[in-house]
Design a protein around this nucleic acid. Structure first.
Length: 514
RNA sequence: GCCUACGUAGUAUAGUGGUGAGUAUCGGGGCCUCCCACGCCUCAGACCUGGGUUCAAAUCCCGGCGUAGGCACCA
């Protein structure tokens, strides 16, 4: 009689309807890995496409690349990941709890132990009598736990490679090639969509914390002197965002609504480029169907900011069971380019006319694709009002645009519907065909994966070449001619016309009165 | 990694130291049906994994893997 959680319901429908599967499920695969099924993959592709349109195609200075996921060790020596992703863990001999050695020392005796070796940490633990937080037990010698997956490169080589823990490094590594080959001038951005890997200690919560995940990132290279001189500033400065300020977090308060300009003036938003991406991220998240009262930007506290970053704002989305952080926005300064310049002895400067060579600074919006997919699933999921659950995906994200189906499999309706299906596919409609079971079952099945429209061939079609279109969100139906149905679906999907508008113009029938 | 609970068809569940492992739903095929998981027939489908105890283990014990929650860790 246990009431199932929302997450369990979503996982259930993901499995049944081909959206998301656990990896290597038949071997009880390790946790933290999930794969997209046919329906989920379609949703994923659609989200990627929306992102590319907004963040790459809509700009005139953003270039997209695709980098290697395995990179040699020196990359991560330079980037700091070998050091800072390397946590010294110590374990209690009594209760087996794990702690970060540096954290527990700092917590119990307030000493900063940055840069100490494992042996030195252990000495301090013994000397200062540091004990287990939970049971006061004795702590073991700390050992390294690195969150990066390592591998070897080449057949007999002892050359170490790592699966990248973030996509960003490829962009820094290719900085010179890109700026030269594209004749790029500051400011310009490099975008990348790809996998990243982190060997999390305990993956949890379905798609929230994964060991293999996908990021959509931009590194925006900017002249630091121009960081408060964004080209579109006048157009966006009055845009309102909600920010959970550092002050509000201390007071356990609520996000504050402010214009971007006010955020800059009050020194809450670090610079105009970050403000610009807050603007862009806000629009994007709303395109995914998430309303503005459901998300905000959290200004990370200083001790939560990553080793490379000067300022961070996480876009967090509120759901019934909690908060999901989906998009990071970081000011990485010139940290990465300088580190790689030093380590590789490569010039990472770019020429700025009238100024000479400089190392640009970097603003990085970083989108967690898997988390966004999850956010979309959670946000679109509806379990009330019908005998089945359904997804009210935005039309541009839904796995298919329309179902084509005959009312019944007889009297030629089947063949007519199938011909219409091929016709619509030729017209570029992302259509799916189904003639099994009965009509109600088919509507329900398609609601369940969030297909926005169902086109039904019925007896009238055979007489006068009209079909009905059923709207997923209202279950209302209209009747239109077969010749027009493709273009009408196209206009509905692109939101050139709304359902309400088209209802005015056509015959509405069979209103569902349950 | 620790603690607690759990693991039976795709999903949800019943059940017992010796069973033909039951039911519902989904799925496939067929029938019926002029619009929202109708009904009928039919087929297919399961005891997480490895070891131990036992004449006998899906059932009891231990380990592993996985899931949920809590701790810790992490963004």
């Amino acid at each position: 009689m246990k009431k199932k959680s929302l997450q369990e319901d979503i996982v259930d429908v993901c499995l049944r309807r081909g959206i998301i599967f656990p990896s290597a499920e038949i071997y009880n695969g390790p946790s933290g890995f999930y794969e997209f099924g046919p329906v989920g993959e379609s949703i994923r592709q659609n989200i990627i496409q929306l992102w590319q349109e907004a963040f790459v195609n809509a700009e005139n200075n953003v270039y997209e690349i695709s980098g290697s996921t395995i990179l040699p060790e020196n990359v991560f020596e330079a980037s700091g990941h070998l050091e800072s992703f390397n946590d010294p863990l110590t374990q209690c001999e009594g209760c087996k709890s794990m702690f970060r050695a540096d954290h527990i020392i700092e917590e119990q005796v307030g000493i900063n132990v940055d840069g100490k070796s494992l042996a030195e940490l252990f000495d301090i633990i013994k000397e200062k009598n540091i004990v287990c937080n939970t049971c006061k037990g004795v702590l073991t010698m700390p050992r390294e736990f690195n969150m990066m997956f390592s591998t070897t490169i080449g057949p007999v080589s002892d050359k170490t490679g790592y699966l990248r823990p973030e996509t960003a490094q490829n962009i820094f590594l290719n900085f010179r090639r890109i700026s030269h080959s594209m004749r790029a001038k500051l400011p310009f951005g490099v975008a990348q969509i790809g996998k990243a890997y982190r060997n999390e200690i305990s993956p949890r919560n379905f798609l929230i914390r994964l060991r293999e995940f996908e990021q959509m990132e931009i590194e925006m290279f900017v002249d630091p002197d121009e960081i408060n001189n964004h080209t579109y500033w006048d157009d966006i400065k009055d845009f309102e965002v909600r920010i959970l300020t550092r002050e509000a977090q201390q007071k356990n308060g609520k996000p504050k609504k402010m214009t971007l300009e006010q955020g800059i003036t009050d020194k809450i938003i670090h610079n105009q480029y970050m403000a610009y991406y807050m603007f862009k991220e806000s629009l994007f998240v709303q395109d995914l169907g998430i309303s503005e009262d459901q998300f905000w930007f959290r200004h990370l506290l200083e001790n939560q900011t990553a080793h490379y970053s000067k300022a961070n704002y996480d876009l967090e989305i509120q759901f019934p069971f909690g908060i999901v952080e989906c998009i990071g926005l970081a000011y990485r300064t010139d940290y990465d380019l300088i580190k790689h310049a030093e380590k590789s002895k490569t010039n990472m400067q770019i020429n700025v006319p009238g100024k000479g060579n400089i190392v640009p600074h970097v603003i990085e919006p970083s989108f967690g694709l898997n988390r966004l997919v999850y956010a979309v699933l959670l946000n679109s999921y509806i379990s009330e009002g019908r005998e089945w659950t359904w997804f009210k995906f935005p039309k541009s994200i839904a796995p298919w645009e329309a179902l084509i189906t005959p009312l019944m499999k007889k009297d030629g309706m089947d063949e007519t519907a199938e011909n219409l299906y091929w016709d619509l596919k030729d017209q570029g409609i992302d259509a799916i065909y189904d003639n099994s079971g009965n009509i109600g079952k088919r509507y329900a099945r398609n609601d369940e994966v969030g297909v926005p429209f169902c086109i039904t061939v019925d007896y009238d079609t055979l007489k006068d070449e009209t079909v009905t279109i059923r709207d997923r969100d209202t279950t209302e139906q209209i009747r239109v001619s077969m010749d027009e149905v493709g273009s009408i679906i196209r206009e509905l999907i692109l939101e050139i016309i709304t359902w309400e508008e088209i209802k005015e113009e056509t015959e509405v029938l069979n209103e569902n009165t349950e």
